[in-house]
Write a protein that binds this DNA or RNA. Sequence first.
DNA 1: GTGAAAGCGCTAACAA
DNA 2: TTGTTAGCGCTTTCAC
Lengths: 351, 351
Amino acid sequence: MSNQQQEPRANGTGKPTLRDLAAAAGVSFSLASIVMRDAPGASESTRARVKRVAEEIGYRPNLAARFLRRGRSRLIGVSYRLNSPYLADVVRSIYAAAGAAGYDVVLGGWYDTDSERKAASTLVGYRSAALILVGPTLPSTDLAQLAEQEPIVTLYVRKSLPSADSVITNEHLGMRLLVDYLVGIGHRAIAHVDGGAAVVSEARRVGYRHAMEAHGLGEQVRIVPGGETLEAGVAAADRLAPEAGAHTAITAFNDDCAHGLIDRLESLGIAVPGNLSVTGFDGGRYSTFLPHHLTTVRQDHERYAQLSVQRVIERLEHGAEGGQHAVVEPSLVIGRSTRPVVVKAGSTPAA
Amino acid sequence: MSNQQQEPRANGTGKPTLRDLAAAAGVSFSLASIVMRDAPGASESTRARVKRVAEEIGYRPNLAARFLRRGRSRLIGVSYRLNSPYLADVVRSIYAAAGAAGYDVVLGGWYDTDSERKAASTLVGYRSAALILVGPTLPSTDLAQLAEQEPIVTLYVRKSLPSADSVITNEHLGMRLLVDYLVGIGHRAIAHVDGGAAVVSEARRVGYRHAMEAHGLGEQVRIVPGGETLEAGVAAADRLAPEAGAHTAITAFNDDCAHGLIDRLESLGIAVPGNLSVTGFDGGRYSTFLPHHLTTVRQDHERYAQLSVQRVIERLEHGAEGGQHAVVEPSLVIGRSTRPVVVKAGSTPAA
DNA sequence: GTGAAAGCGCTAACAA
DNA sequence: TTGTTAGCGCTTTCAC
């Protein structure tokens, strides 16, 4: 039918341009543009025809040109650590939330602080309108620099920057849920494996301490050096083994740490939860995973996504100020890594 | 010192442009451009000064403008399924390999076939020079359409398209390694839990069958319906339980399936590896994870990344034809989910 | 509905 | 080293 079988102009990229599309569809350049961006000003029939031709010749709007021309874009840059299944969940939800609000998402993946810096820089280079940094490890100075460029919101991590927003977990509550639960099933001697250099270590440590004190167990507070990895959990187990009898439960810094801890404890002949109850923290995809079925606290990743996107939109569209910090409440998940304290015959449960 | 404290022009985005940078640094527009793209033609001292000023005023090259102007870009689009820790590994390695070759990477995350289609489309919209599709689920028709636009290479999955490249696993070898190992430690009655609709199911199933036949165990071949998820593994365990005594080992379709299988078997009182040995397939980050220490085959994700990037470059820079399929050999990882067959007193090991 | 025109920020080639 | 220039492909405004 179309007797104007014209080939895409050799324009360097080999790909058809809007001008090619207009020619192929027999409409004006402007009309083609109107159709492709779903703007008003074209009849339904033309619209359908142009779209069909676009499909035929494989035309796709050049996003670089579009963004360039549009200036400030409806683009949210999302930077996140590859390789972390927990975070991937939230990224997925950000896609959904942003899409619903008419924003596009551009991803920047990273795996260490250097690559994170580069990823953020690239995202800014794309002239994203705002940045969502998922679990950033960047120091405040870098973050401050980014915050000067565009609104940023950090997820899971709160940095003390006047202009950055954040969505974070109520770490204290999380630890309290865990300790309350353990105390509720009879534990008293509960130790905590610390997160070391991890950003939220202190919050969890303090949360643990407060929760213990709230139960009048201040004397029982015991904090063991640890970290946020499987390996750190393994090392902590070695550290704990000599004093095995002294505790009946351990709150590990996070799920990975708990997994490492449990694995090593069992190798050392200390059964979990038989001899010792262990809890995690995070509630990611793999944490309540078979077969440990960790007792842990779960985070509602979708909520994080919604809050962060909402925040971005408030700042972008309603000119809201930065510096707000939303707090998400975690919830307790009871697994099989904990069990009630067995009261020895003849002894009385402590007060 | 710099008495030309001029504010960034209000250009809509609020961000400094190259022109602002040139003015702030007191150099010409062209020189600033030369410095920012590390092109020859500027003295070291100027270079340093311009870079410093760029830092000061927070100048970042507008990537959209740069790509637009450059036409065909040194940009590789990588589409991958969010939420899969295995794949994130390879994405990370693609970053490294691409970076080393002077390419940038733009990520497209997805979570179902629809969003995968959209992600791929966006990547093309960015005028990426080539596409690496990690574990695509897109049907061949979509892939063919993409392949018309630019070179594509599919990872882990081979589709029968004349123009697409792929990097895939030697599934047959993987299954053979597993079966050989099991037979070597005395197993004869080895069943296979199938992957169902998964793309590579057939290859693994056939690999299993061939390996069994190679050992003269064709009679023992038993294939149980399964799938690629934890849940599928659980269901398969239920299916296998009634005939528990009939097998001494199971090769599960993949690691997730194996995990589900083991977890359910143990709940049913069938110890792994005590009563039954189980193997996985994949070797991702979480598969040889504590505490199952699955016996499985591992894939060298870095190798996939290197091969795919190399392929992209061959096509882009040396005009190579598509349609090549690189095969990566997996390697056996011996864990704790398998153990030698215990020969019952009075019986003789079968021939 | 059309057609013209300006210009987003940049690269790259050129002459000075 | 500099300044100039011509676009990359698109959006958007305007008069027709």
